[in-house]
Amino acid sequence: MMQKLSENILDKFSMDFLRSQVLKNAYGNNDTVIAARDPRVLLAWYLFFGLVPWFVQDMTFLLGCFVLVMITTLLARVAGLVLLLFGVGVFSQTGYLLLVTWLFGGDASAIMPLLILTLKVATISLASVTVFSGLDPDRLANGLMWYGCPERLSFSISYAYRILPMLMEEFQNVLLSYRLRGNPPAHDTFAGKVRYLAYQVKIIMYAFYPLMLNTAKRSRTTVEALEIRGYRYAATNKEVRRIKLAGLRLTWDDGIFAALSLLWVAATLLLGTLV
């Protein structure tokens, strides 16, 4: 039973799965409420929820923010893998401290600060998850460009998403070469399992070498094609920037989104002073 389960998990957690999750995360949810927002509004929104919680100690306010970003994360229909990473991340940052303190009989004076810290980290992470995986990369790039980020950065973001699936497929094939031709240590005993794990890690590291060379070979064409297609030309041309940003438009819904968030924050602040 246990073996079946572990096999099943490994099965699910294949390169193929990662690839589909990355794509899903980037482009699979472009019809959600969050994805439809103007990227400039979302970035400003993120600036608030990504920064302010650090400087506030008020429990009610933090809880309020946490609930709000949780709702937006749900609205953005973020891919499961990202949420899992979020969970692991928060736990490994501060969550384990909270758990340990509580288990070993720490009292409220010890638990409260840790709880607040965990809440802060969770709120900020969820706000990032909402913005960076709820928006499709191109809209995000355009939003960043509007705020004055260099064209190169915004191009890199959208190009990374274009090339990532290709890289992962290639990596998968290189790994398969190792798997088919390699000879891993037997892993029936515990020591064998450790050796097997070490072997796997080693193979993953080795696999980067062919991956890099293959990518370098591919990019020769990409570099020339970018040159022909006017990439360098656009990077220095103000007019192109204007055309690109012309696609950004504020709608009433953006206003409602901002107003609702504001209202929510105000309400939690009010509640905080009442309690």
């Binding site: 191109d138 274009r162 064409t221 094609a225 022909i228 006017g230 030309y233 192109v240 055309i243």
Partner: peptide
């Protein structure tokens, strides 16, 4: 390797946008 944008229309119009 010549295709640099994620959607079809985006890629087809990419050079025109750049110029």
């Amino acid at each position: 390797n010549q295709i640099v944008r994620p959607t079809v229309l985006d890629d087809a119009s990419y050079a025109c946008l750049n110029y």
